[in-house]
């Protein structure tokens, strides 16, 4: 009972968190970032893939997870374009299509020579999750006869010779849940032996991390905003994840201070009750 009386008004907590998140985004502190092995593995997967290889990037998220997944997706797409990899965009989530288009639009100024249909293609969204991936593995042209604009994939040079996963170097899924990276691992990697990697939200990382194992079901994993910031460091681009990490670090620190304060209050109240 005593601890309840001592509890802080939640509005103070909200205000402190707001300031803790907003100030680093405005002032840009620039806290150091260490690169984890999982993120480096994803980076090296892209880096060591020969130029002109065809890769699949699956956008399996929507605007709700955009602040966390968009920065890592942008970093990976940028690295793929830098390495002259040919990107086939797909989406297991309806709004993933717009997410992929948005990133290409953002990068157009940096890569003015990119040509749709030659350097990249957006096949759009296909319902079905795991079934869609299985069908892609059997006959990609049957499941995606047209791109998102309705153009036949026979007219797109990038799709020449792409009948299934055999000509694909790797798949990377940016995943906010189900369907997403788990389905890509279970079908694309486990069934078709396609190198699979990806990025997930921080909250879903524990469920996906076991797939990063000796069998390399996942070749590395970019987890949350921290992973995105690490990736930005690797490609030497300071983007929104890097500034976001300052905000996240400070917010976590504030939460820890609040937790410690609550515990100190609790123990003081307990001691007082014992004395009585």
């Amino acid at each position: 009972m005593a601890e309840k009386k001592k509890q802080l008004d939640r509005r103070w907590i909200f205000l402190t968190i707001f300031l803790g998140v907003a100030l680093p985004l405005i002032l840009k502190i620039g806290l150091p970032i260490s690169v984890s092995e999982n993120v480096r593995n994803v980076y090296e997967l892209v880096e060591n893939t020969p130029p002109d290889s065809k890769v699949i990037l699956s956008f399996d998220y929507d605007p709700a997870s955009k602040p966390e997944l968009h920065p890592m997706a942008r970093a990976v797409v940028k690295q793929c374009f830098q390495k002259n990899l040919k990107i086939i965009f797909t989406a297991l989530w309806p709004m993933g299509v717009q997410m992929a288009s948005d990133i290409v639009d953002q990068l157009k100024d940096e890569f003015p020579n990119l040509k749709y249909g030659e350097n990249y293609v957006n096949l759009g969204y296909k319902a079905g999750g795991m079934v869609t991936i299985q069908a892609m593995g059997r006959n990609l042209r049957a499941i995606f006869p047209q791109d998102m604009n309705g153009t036949s994939i026979d007219e797109l040079p990038i799709m020449n010779g792409v009948n299934n996963f055999e000509t694909i170097a790797f798949v990377i899924s940016f995943s906010a849940g189900d369907p997403g990276i788990k389905q890509w691992v279970q079908v694309a990697h486990d069934t078709y032996k396609l190198k699979t990697s990806g990025g997930v939200t921080g909250v879903s990382a524990p469920a996906i991390l076991p797939y990063v194992n000796e069998q390399k079901q996942l070749t590395g994993l970019i987890a949350g905003l921290k992973g995105a910031a690490e990736y930005e460091k690797l490609i030497r681009t300071l983007g929104t994840a890097t500034s976001g990490m300052d905000a996240q670090s400070l917010a976590h620190l504030i939460i820890i201070v609040f937790i410690l304060t609550a515990n100190i209050n609790f123990w003081i109240a307990k001691k007082k009750e014992k004395k009585k």
């Binding site: 806290l31 150091p32 970032i33 921080g202 949350g224 921290k226 990490m245 300052d246 996240q248 670090s249 976590h252 620190l253 939460i255 820890i256």
Partner: peptide, 8 residues
Amino acid sequence: VMLGNTSI
């Protein structure tokens, strides 16, 4: 976990 997930 909270500390490990930050630059701090």
